[in-house]
Computed example of a mutant assay.
Amino acid sequence: MKALKIVLSVLVFGLVSAFTFNRVVTSGYEVGDKATDFKLKNIDDKMVSLSDYKDVKGYIVIFTCNHCPFAIAYEDRIIALDKKYKKLGYPVIAINPNNPEVQEKDSFELMKVRAKEKGFTFPYLFDEGQKIYPQYGATKTPHVYVLKKTKEGNIVKYIGAIDDNHTDETAVKVKYVENAVDALLKNKEVSVKMTKAIGCSIKA
């Protein structure tokens, strides 16, 4: 009887673990999903929503932060993305998903400092309470979601990395985000819809 209880306990634990694992892996948006809007505080202390952008064609939503070396390595490329595509209707919307109680370098006040130091040309929003990044399913910084604005809502068209080389910009061979946005601007299908985001884990 005792052995049977142990076996049953292991089976139950295994089922619960499997369910939890699957739930975590499959949580968040997939390509083709409609992304809900949000209202988050920008570094200028104003609240920002996607709906504030009336005349855009879509958005390049990037979960990033201050401290992560991967995020830092991509800062200039994120600025370049915004400068190139904002005028074409796809502005960058950056969101810091990290909990500053876990990583103090990602506090709201230090976000302001970093944005000023780097001359960010885009909103840098604070996911206070960490409510938005789980909806998207972001796991890394940086983690990108390209959204197309449609009558049905903001549809996810690409998820993943910015490009294929986080260590050396000069060695980049495939610019995933640029390719995705370029395709959307031509009303074409995005060829590579999902890649693995490379970066620091989000600090919850």
Rank of each mutant, 00 (worst) to 15 (best):
F122H: 08
V31D: 02
V10G: 02
A180Y: 01
A71V: 07
G137Q: 09
K203R: 14
D82Y: 05
K54P: 06
K131T: 13
H166L: 04
K46G: 03
F120M: 04
I132A: 03
K84Q: 13
E75G: 05
N99M: 04
A18I: 13
V12W: 01
P97N: 06
G14C: 08
A204S: 12
A35W: 04
G89M: 12
K175F: 12
I79G: 03
V56A: 05
A161E: 10
N179C: 00
G119V: 08
N179F: 02
K173C: 09
L185Y: 10
T150Q: 07
K151R: 12
E109K: 14
L50E: 01
E189T: 15
N165L: 10
Q103T: 14
D182H: 07
K57F: 04
P134K: 04
C65K: 07
I79Q: 10
K87I: 12
I95A: 02
D52A: 12
G58H: 09
D45I: 10
V156S: 06
C68T: 08
F21R: 14
K193A: 07
G153M: 06
E101Y: 09
V10F: 06
F63L: 11
E169R: 13
E178M: 09
K188F: 03
N98P: 09
R77W: 01
L40E: 01
G58C: 09
K46C: 02
V144M: 06
L8K: 11
K193H: 04
H143T: 05
S17W: 15
S49A: 14
I95P: 00
F120R: 08
Y133T: 03
Y90H: 10
K41L: 06
I43L: 01
L8P: 02
Y158H: 11
L4A: 14
E75F: 11
E189I: 08
P69R: 08
D127V: 03
Y158P: 06
V61A: 07
K173W: 01
F19I: 14
V181I: 11
A171V: 00
F21K: 11
N154F: 08
E178S: 14
M194S: 15
V25T: 11
F70G: 07
M111W: 07
D52L: 13
G199A: 07
R114T: 05
D44L: 12
I6A: 11
V113G: 00
L15C: 13
T170W: 00
P69Y: 07
D52E: 13
E104T: 14
T170C: 00
L50N: 07
K175V: 03
G28P: 02
R114K: 15
A183Q: 09
K46P: 00
Y85D: 00
K116I: 03
Y145R: 12
M194K: 14
K83R: 11
F13Y: 12
L147G: 00
L110I: 06
P91F: 10
T195L: 05
Y133K: 05
A3S: 15
